[in-house]
Nucleic acid binder design. Structure first.
Lengths: 171, 171
DNA sequence: CCGAAAATGAGACTCGATATCAATTTCATA
DNA sequence: TATGAAATTGATATCGAGTCTCATTTTCGG
């Protein structure tokens, strides 16, 4: 009945880049966000930057609550609503994608400059495994074209047990 | 700000079967459900049967609220909780599948005896287009095997605009 | 028919997400 | 740099899908 697990969020570079390299990457993404905001007549505020940085430096998919908790420590005035609003903005400009989680709490990941991939979600340990399958994509695109559909985004999640969680039986 | 659209649910056979044919189909599915219940020491009650019949005869994916509204008319004592509970039972025995909808309200479809398929969801008119792509499935399965993952179910939804809703611009 | 177990439905409750709104911040412009 | 309209924020209220509780009713084997 705990409100949420994973109260502690350890932040470290996702791609283990060189510091300088990472800085440049970070700057590029910030700029993308900035441009999107300007296009809408909005500003890149301290809070928005913090939230984006948090998502950029996390080594895993985070929920809004996790982002909020992590940032609250270094900025106690931050409000939940701002995190929700900012994540929505980041989704709109395609920097962040929702990865529907198991129990109604959505998790988010940074999409920027990362190749397209889908997810396998372990129902035991909640681990999210990213995978790519260009061939699968290809046939998916073909199906979309066949229907005369214009795809804006998609969600492809496979639920089951990961390699480490294949216990013989549920106790 | 309406609580929910589509208050009216028109029920008619999904597959336009012959009456006798449909009756037999219905009986088979009811029996499947029955068997699942007995296996768990549960009973097939009037409410449970009504709910399954409703899902079986709908021509589209329904939300719990829609099932509830439709049945409430012919059985005013029916409770929301019962619909939620029954849909969960139907999911457990594989007769019904959740099709994650746009706004947090899940919709459900009857899976029984229908071939596997995925969905394209129109963000304009909420229409759900079912499609099949055996090749796509094949490469998906391959990816799952490659990860040593054991898949239990999956969700593959493509969001965008359907053929009829490709307006030139959002006003 | 009896009685234990299952099922129901009304309503309280949970909790992620959104809306509201007064106070604060931002930035183009003077 | 000062100004003010527009954007932003955060506290809080609110919403709503889904779950839980529990007293009452139904089911079904014996």
């Amino acid at each position: 009945m705990a409100t949420h697990q994973n109260a502690e969020v350890i932040l470290f570079p996702k791609h283990a880049r060189q510091p300088t390299q990472h800085k440049r990457w970070l700057a590029t993404i910030l700029q993308t966000f900035q441009e999107h905001l300007v296009r809408q007549g909005l500003n890149l505020t301290r809070q928005r930057e913090e939230i984006l940085r948090c998502l950029m430096s996390a080594d895993r998919h985070l929920s809004v609550e996790e982002v909020y908790d992590a940032l609250k420590k270094q900025d106690p005035t931050l409000g939940r609503a701002t995190v929700f609003r900012t994540v929505k903005l980041l989704q709109e400009c395609g920097l962040v994608a929702e990865v529907g989680a198991l129990n109604g709490r959505s998790k988010f990941e940074l999409k920027a400059d990362r190749p397209h991939h889908d997810h396998m979600v372990c129902i035991e340990c909640s681990r999210i495994i990213e995978f790519q399958s260009p061939m699968m994509e290809r046939f998916q695109d073909e199906a979309i074209r066949r229907q005369g559909f214009v795809a804006l985004w998609h969600r492809h999640e496979i639920f089951g047990r990961c390699k480490n969680c294949q216990r013989p039986r549920r106790s």
